[in-house]
Nucleic acid binder design. Structure first.
Length: 861
RNA sequence: GCCCGCGUGGUGGAAUGGUAGACACAGGGGACUUAAAAUCCCUAGGCCGGAAGGCCGUGCGAGUUCGAGUCUCGCCGCGGGCACCA
């Protein structure tokens, strides 16, 4: 926290010395009171149900932004609500502290990534604490703490022992000028971000986690995640990409060439095969390149550009005819050419395919380009037009008419044909049904300094050996420089030199560090025992796990969440988590992002230059230059469309910022920051404060007491439901309405005090400081944070009469007031007597009369 | 290119298949004030109409239904992810 100043809570004048709502005084006072009472410190307590709420921890960029405020306020609402409903709550905070920006800062501004990172953490902690989050700060850690990454290294060694880690070659983005590996984000339009040189793909030996071993399990278990959003589960299902297909081989016509093994999910279209395609990285392509300079040149062509799937998919489809031919498995007389194609991935299936251009658009485009044959294998039932410019790709469930299908099909769906073909090939003995996954193993090697060192040693005699656990953590050396590109660990004079953990002879450390996704794949488990001498402490993990509510950005829907699910399983296998924690997150909520307009000008070369919102007034910079306004997008440092919450907190207080980020948009949707919204939130909070401050005790009772109580119970019910279902904006709308009701009520002071006390309690999860102040002003006992959540009296929620709208032919024309439980027949009588209905019927009888009890009536004439 | 979302007044948004626009912002009008700020009250989707009322209206086009913002299909636009940004 920033210096809290003298604490008004203990001033002799009490809370009413203020004549208006003063957030800064209130907020520091109650933060001190919470700290004094230690009410957010979590400990095991079996007398209460536990509740673990976790928001995705932040990257310490140095400044918090509105996205953080929104994310952590949502988690805080849940945490405080659960505390009030009698739970033992764990709500921790930490830092995802390794990663590229620290190294970039070191390169750009000098200094050390460690100093930059810990400095940022201190700054951000200082910006976060004034938000008044109910966090147990005693559990805080950063992933770059040796105490954390040492435990991660220990687990890496455990994973090695269980066969969950291996090495293989994989492609990286290579900058041929800087002679360094580039991250995908450092490849801009196929060029290195610093050198500007065209990027190449290059193979390196890298470390991998065997996540593919868990593909089926990770897929099947999604079905049990009832409190995860469907969209996330769908994305993960598609990412894992289970498919059933046929694997078989084409024998080469030429001597000395091995059969080409292909995998296809559409074996039913084998009679439409046009050519056999192999990846540029296929062993056969490599072998041919050794003697054929044209093929070598073509392969080199294929290495151009970045490694992302997007880059590969969008690249122009290129092919090279090897001159080799293969025999069709169903007709040895039929030979097909073998092409090398840049769109075939070595990582998927066997790295070789057969192309059926009639029923695959990409194959068709390729065949038209290189003048290869197109053979229809099936037609629509009512249209036998041969394929022209567009491939015929009906859904697999649609029946089609087959042309001379070898398995004897005439009219059948694609799926039926696939199944029949696999069956046919297996019986005939030339192919086998194979289940494949799109999911690839997790490559975790990074050729960078600021990450967790991979704890292995390369020994000439013993090979690749894990470091001894007693030598952990393998610490990052501090004496490194970032004056040239590449990994400083690689060029460190002594750090690499270590004795082999097995034979003791001189050996070399691994210089790759781990992907930062590794760090974030188990932090949730570490929070249950952040100081343990082992990665976790089982009694603590057993008590606190699983995370009951996980909250974070939709941008993590696939990678982070999938990796975490894998890690939980691997940790469980190694004894670091209990069996029940295979799925570590019981419920997931994906919040929308905070967006903002982007302000851009261009430099002399026409390159974009971005500007922070505070540099822009009325569409102009301070020097009068007009900025180009680009529509709202995810806040990002590189685009500079970032809003600083610190200014908002200084101007209005944390409660206003919290109230605003919850009120203005549904939590799962993006929210655009607006200055006027914050102003309005602050006005409202001032109004609530005034209602409490002006409470006049003169009239103890009044004529409207009962109505106010009804409104109170209705609001308690609605707000409780709203919080439980993440409908924070709707809950806040109810609180606005209730405040209006109180302000206008004719009720006496007793009922008003009761209503305002309930209002304070209901607002407490969202605006905890103001709620404490109100609670104290109204004479509440102790802290409102510790007070039990109010309960709505069901008897006060029932309404005895309802207004039934009457529709005529689906359009609202009239309404009647009836007793809530009035019999359907009675309602019908009243409806038929209604003026508008009588007029519409014009003496006739209705065609249909629909009565939805308590909701609506529809008369069809 | 592929996968997943989203699209409602001037603005943010509300709405178990059942009165579209709750609640709020900006706007308009008024009260209080010497004046302003603050506060309070009224008003408010569009079009026609003095009013009563009517017609249109949830990105576009079809469909299912007594009834569609909500469900289905096809488009358009925007956003997220695409395995080395975190």
């Amino acid at each position: 926290m920033t210096t809290p100043g003298p604490c008004p809570a203990f001033s002799s004048e009490g809370p009413l010395y203020m004549s208006r709502y003063s957030a800064s005084e209130i907020e520091s006072k109650w933060q001190a009171a919470w700290e004094k009472a230690s009410i957010f410190k979590a400990g095991r307590d079996t007398s209460k149900p536990k509740y673990y709420v976790l928001e995705m921890f932040p990257y310490p960029s140095g400044r918090i932004h509105m996205g953080h405020v929104r994310n952590y306020t949502m988690g805080d609402v849940i945490a405080r609500y659960k505390l009030a409903t009698g739970h033992n709550v764990l709500h921790p905070m930490g830092w995802d502290a390794f990663g590229m920006p620290a190294e970039n800062a070191a390169m750009e501004r000098g200094g050390h990534p460690k100093d930059w990172t810990y400095g940022n953490i201190a700054d951000m902690r200082g910006q976060m604490k004034p938000l008044g989050l109910s966090i147990d700060w005693s559990r805080e850690f950063a992933t770059c703490d040796p105490e954390y990454y040492g435990q991660q290294q220990s687990m890496f060694i455990d994973f090695m022992e269980k066969g969950l880690v291996y090495r293989k070659n994989a492609t990286v983005n290579w900058d041929p000028v800087d002679m360094t590996v580039l991250a995908n984000e450092q490849v801009i339009d196929g060029k290195g971000w610093r050198s500007g040189a065209p990027v190449e793909r290059r193979e390196l030996t890298q470390w991998f986690f065997k996540i593919s071993d868990f593909a089926e399990e990770l897929l099947d278990s999604l079905d049990g995640l009832d409190d995860w959003p469907d969209k996330v589960k769908t994305m993960q299902r598609n990412w894992i990409g289970k498919s059933r297909g046929l694997q078989f081989s084409f024998d080469a016509v030429q001597d000395g060439i091995d059969p080409i093994e292909v995998y296809t999910t559409r074996p039913d279209t084998l009679m439409g095969a046009s050519f056999v395609g192999i990846s540029a990285d296929h062993p056969l392509a490599k072998k041919l390149a050794e003697t054929n300079p044209d093929i070598a040149a073509f392969r080199a062509d294929c290495q151009k550009g970045g490694t992302t799937e997007e880059a590969l998919e969008k690249a122009e489809k290129l092919g090279f005819d090897t001159g080799l031919t293969v025999r069709h498995p169903l007709n040895p007389e039929w030979t097909l050419p073998v092409w090398i194609a840049n769109f075939i991935l070595m990582d998927y299936g066997t790295g070789a395919i057969f192309a059926c251009p009639a029923h695959d658009q990409r194959d068709l485009d390729f065949c038209r380009k290189y003048d290869l044959p197109v053979i229809d294998t099936f037609f629509a039932l009512d249209d036998a037009t041969p394929v022209g410019a567009e491939a015929f790709v009906p859904p697999k469930e649609q029946s089609v008419k087959w042309v001379n299908h070898f398995a004897g099909l005439d009219v059948a769906t694609g799926q039926e044909a696939i199944d029949a073909t696999i069956d046919f090939a297996e019986k005939a003995g030339w192919g086998r049904g194979v289940t494949n996954f799109r999911l690839r193993d997790w490559g975790l090697s990074r050729q960078r300094y600021w990450g967790c060192p991979i704890p292995v040693v390369h020994c000439e005699a013993c090979g690749v050996m894990p470091e001894r656990k007693e030598n952990l953590p393998v610490r990052l050396p501090d004496d490194v420089s970032f004056d040239k590109p590449g990994n400083p660990l690689d060029r460190h004079p002594t750090w690499r030199d270590v004795p082999c953990p097995a034979c003791g002879k001189p050996a070399k450390r691994e210089t790759d560090t781990m992907d930062t996704f590794v760090d974030s794949s188990w932090y949730y488990a570490r929070f249950t025992a952040p100081d343990a001498e082992t990665p976790t402490s089982l009694p603590d993990a057993d008590y606190w796990m699983n995370v009951d509510q996980y909250i974070g950005g939709i941008e993590h829907a696939i990678l982070h969440l999938l990796y975490s699910r894998f890690f939980a399983r691997a940790m469980q296998i190694c004894g670091h988590l209990p069996e029940k924690s295979k799925e570590p997150f019981n419920a997931l909520f994906t919040q929308g992002m905070v967006t903002h307009e982007i302000y851009m000008t261009r430099d002399g070369n026409g390159r974009p230059v971005y500007h922070l919102p505070e540099e822009v007034t009325d569409g102009k910079l301070a020097d009068g230059t007009e900025v180009e306004i680009i529509p709202s997008a995810k806040m990002s440092k590189s685009k500079k469309n970032v809003v600083d919450p610190v200014n908002i907190i200084e101007a209005y207080g944390a409660d206003t910022a919290r109230w605003f980020v919850l009120s203005d948009s549904p939590p799962e949707r993006d929210v655009e920051w607006t200055a006027s919204g914050a102003e309005a939130a602050h006005k409202h909070l001032s109004r609530v404060w005034r209602l409490a401050a002006e409470l006049d005790a003169a009239e103890a009772t009044g004529p409207g007491d009962d109505d106010l109580r009804r409104a109170m119970h209705k609001t308690i019910h609605d707000v409780t439901m709203g919080i439980e279902s993440f409908g924070f904006n709707a809950a806040i709308a109810k609180l606005y309405a209730f405040t209006n009701t109180i302000a206008k009520a004719k009720a006496g002071a007793g009922a008003r005090r009761e209503a305002l006390s309930a209002l304070a309690q209901l607002m407490a999860p969202m605006t905890p400081h103001l709620a404490e102040e109100l609670w104290q002003m109204l004479g509440g006992e102790g802290l409102v944070t510790a007070a039990p959540w109010p309960k709505a009296d069901p008897a006060m929620l029932v309404e005895d009469t309802v207004t039934l709208p009457i529709q005529i032919n689906g359009k609202r024309r009239s309404e009647i007031a009836v007793a809530k439980d009035l019999a359907k027949e009675e309602v019908e009588k009243l409806v038929l007597a209604d003026d508008a209905v009588v007029k519409a019927l014009n003496g006739g009888a209705p065609k249909k009369l629909i009565v939805v009890p308590g909701r609506i009536v529809n008369v069809v004439v």
